[in-house]
């Protein structure tokens, strides 16, 4: 029962009840990212406000529980935060995912996203977890232009 530790309750909860899903107006930038090996895809929009605030992050996509839950967790993180704050979490999340399961997760920084720690041990699934987070990084850069 190795993988089941990967399927944390929190991940399954987000997968079954995704937060903030559905594309919304207005937005500054829209990006579309795919994972060619498994066909997971996500479309993401970002609207930035005054003082570096993320006014809205909306998304739609399809894929496995890991990729979809990761987008939902990311949405909750961005709500009411600044770009700077969220990018710091993206940074830490990426470090954790690329650490082959050998990186100690910083729960302080990650919050709920720490639930994905187990995914890092499955190289084939790391891209699933990172799909939305990479799309977000991309969308923020494009919004700021």
């Amino acid at each position: 029962m190795i993988a089941e530790s990967m399927y944390q309750e929190l991940i399954l909860e987000h997968y079954k009840h995704p937060q903030g899903r559905g594309l919304r107006e207005p937005y500054d930038a829209e990006v579309h990212h795919v994972n060619p090996t498994c066909g997971d895809e996500i479309t993401m929009r970002v609207k930035l406000g005054d003082g570096g605030k993320v006014e809205d992050m909306s998304y739609d996509g399809q894929g496995c529980s890991i990729s979809q839950a990761a987008a939902s967790v990311l949405y909750e993180l961005t709500a009411g935060s600044t770009v700077e704050e969220t990018l710091a979490v993206v940074e830490e999340f990426t470090r954790l995912m690329q650490g082959r399961g050998k990186v100690e997760a910083d729960e302080e920084v990650l919050g709920d996203a720490v639930a994905f720690a187990g995914v890092a041990r499955f190289p084939a699934r790391v891209k699933c977890a990172l799909l939305a987070w990479m799309a977000y990084k991309d969308a923020v850069v494009r919004s700021a232009r």
């Binding site: 190795i2 993988a3 496995c64 890991i66 699934r125």
Partner: peptide, 9 residues
């Protein structure tokens, strides 16, 4: 992917 992972693990 979720099906395959759980079947294997």
């Amino acid at each position: 992917h979720d099906v395959g992972q759980i079947l294997d693990d």
